[in-house]
Structures are given as C-alpha cells and as structure tokens.
Nucleic acid binder design. Structure first.
Length: 121
DNA sequence: AAGATGACTAGGT
DNA sequence: GACCTAGCCATCT
C-alpha cells in the first residue's frame, strides 16, 4: 500500500451515501491531480476492502465505467439505486443532483497538445 | 529499464 | 454532440 493508495481509499470512504465522485476528483483530493488511472488501479487491487463505497466512483461523464453487459455494471447500478440515486439512462447518473463536490476545474493539468493531423476532414 | 494494462480525461476535429 | 488521441499514474511483466 502506497501512501497515495491509502489516501484514495480514505477519500472514497468520505463520499456520503447518495452521492458520487469522479475518478479525477478522487485523485485530486488524494493529492495527485491527473492520476485518475492510478485510482482505477487501486480500486482493482483493493476490490476486497469491506465497506468501501466503490460504487460511488464514476467517470467524468457521469457514467458507470463498466461495460453495460458486465455483471459489475449491474451490481454497481443496483447499489446506486439502493441509495436513491437518479439515473438519466441505465448507465448515466444525474451529476447535477448527486455529485459529491463541485469539480474544481483549475490548474490546467499539463500541457496537452497535438491532436490529429487529419487532413481533409 | 522498457513496455503493457486499466472502472480515465482533456482537447481538438 | 460524437469520435479520436495523446497525456496521466501506479503497478506488474
């Protein structure tokens, strides 16, 4: 367990019932903005921690990150419904109502550049 | 040390 | 909007 992992777990534990947070948000609160993928890894490796509200973590688009056909998807959806969380569609949650905290969109993470040449669009 | 993986994301087309 | 891509990070091969 790295310190980052511990903070991530602790942060997820703070998400109140009936609310959700995004991967990037968790990463930022854990001290590493931009480490959304790191959060994913941690969730996978800690998938046995009892009482961890992993289902309250969704992606930035407000959707359950699992494939619709997976059992994980159904399980997460069921857990969220149990908390009276509203879905706009089977996999989309109403972030306006359930997002834990407002996403602080500052600190341009890192220079992103160079899209695709795509000549002749 | 270099490459691959994953429940990701911001930006450009 | 939808689609694509290059960055992200921790961890394992």
């Amino acid at each position: 367990m790295t310190e980052f992992a511990i903070k991530v777990i602790a942060t997820i534990r703070k998400i109140p019932r009936g609310r959700v947070a995004t991967y990037s948000q968790i990463a930022a609160l854990a001290g590493k903005p931009g480490a959304a993928r790191g959060v994913v890894w941690i969730l996978n490796s800690s998938s046995g921690v009892h009482g961890l509200p992993w289902h309250r973590v969704i992606n930035a688009k407000g959707m359950i990150a699992f494939p619709r056909t997976s059992t994980s998807f159904r399980k997460q959806r069921a857990l969220l419904l149990r908390e009276k969380i509203a879905f706009l569609s089977p996999g989309a949650i109403d972030l306006k109502k359930h997002q834990w905290k407002k996403v602080a969109r500052e600190k341009s993470v890192r220079g992103r550049a160079k899209p695709t040449p795509r000549m002749f669009s």
